[in-house]
């Protein structure tokens, strides 16, 4: 068996005349946490569903845990844990009933032990008879993760697992993901959060159905020679400044971060010349800054057409 948990090439998927995923290729190594980023409607969920046999690709080929993604979806389902974007466990079953049902679906022999273990691990042993529908958002996510982990999959496909979850719960969640990866489990995780992207071993960025960038967070950061300036001042000054800077052609982005503005350009010298007239305004402080992943993604997105329609 190869070292790759996911190895797919040229996957395409259309719904009607809408080409949702275009020539999707992805390689995820064993034990790797792979972050999957992109705006809403860019094809993340569709790509993940194709990987776990929930959608049939129109064309393309590849393997998931060594099984063919088109012909061996049954084998893939047995070894993959898939966590849906929307909570999709049964709200009218209790926590324990949900876990037992999932265990049965995977034909687990040591069902009781596995469910008991998962409950203890979740810290839900006392609340096991509570209906899943009555759990708060964060707990639902943890339950969903426990459910998709129950059959000890070798690959986890997580579709925005932390959407709507508080920072503490998100942190716990990522601790767990890293612990799992350390045991050799591969994880593909779709997210919108930049801090989560930074915690991945590798990243892929998709927009309008097309993969635009791949690599380690560091590689992605230096994909472009972006130079960034951080500007601080009073809110009124900054919003007036932002309005003016948006019309300067050498500036790619002006992004507001609380009490600072990030001003970004592709060419350092040109950018410096372009901002020169604004640097002397009183009460405003200009400083060089490192580009963040968010800056890079915003830059990537600018090249891709809008996906909302």
């Amino acid at each position: 068996m190869t070292d790759l948990a996911i190895d797919v090439h040229g996957l395409n998927k259309s719904f009607g005349d809408k080409h949702v995923v275009k020539d999707f290729a992805l390689q995820v190594r064993r034990g790797e946490i792979y972050g999957f980023l992109g705006p809403n409607g860019s094809g993340k969920t569709t790509s993940i569903r194709m990987l776990c046999g929930l959608l049939r690709p129109d064309s393309g080929s590849g393997t998931c845990l060594g099984h063919d993604v088109i012909r061996q979806t049954g084998a893939i389902k047995r070894e993959v844990g898939y966590m849906t974007q929307r909570f999709s466990l049964w709200e009218d079953l209790t926590i324990r009933e949900n876990l037992e049902f999932v265990a049965r679906m995977y034909g687990m022999k040591d069902r009781r032990a596995a469910v008991g273990h998962a409950l203890a691990e979740l810290g839900l042993a006392e609340r096991r008879d509570q209906l899943a529908g009555t759990l708060s958002g964060g707990w639902k996510q943890r339950l969903a993760l426990a459910a998709c982990m129950l059959h000890r999959p070798r690959l986890l496909l997580l579709d925005e697992p932390t959407a709507g979850v508080d920072p503490q719960a998100r942190r716990d969640f990522w601790e767990e993901i890293h612990a799992l990866a350390a045991t050799g489990i591969s994880v593909l995780v779709a997210t919108h959060y930049m801090d989560e992207a930074e915690r991945c071993h590798r990243l892929a960025y998709i927009a309008d159905g097309r993969l635009l960038a791949k690599g380690t967070p560091d590689e992605v950061l230096h994909l472009f020679h972006l130079s960034t300036w951080a500007v601080s001042g009073t809110p009124a000054q900054l919003s007036a400044l932002a309005a003016k800077l948006k019309h300067v052609p050498e500036i790619c982005h002006v992004t507001a971060f609380g009490n600072t503005l990030h001003v970004m350009g592709e060419e350092d010298a040109a950018l410096e010349r372009a901002i020169a007239p604004f640097r002397d305004e009183p009460g405003i402080d200009w400083r060089r800054a490192d580009p963040t992943l968010e800056d890079v993604f915003l830059h990537l997105m600018q090249g891709a057409p809008d996906n909302l329609q």
Binding site: L54, K77, Y82, S88, W90
Partner: peptide, 13 residues
Amino acid sequence: ERGTFENLLATPA
């Protein structure tokens, strides 16, 4: 309608 079908489909059932 409740979205649980996706979960069911993801299992080998």
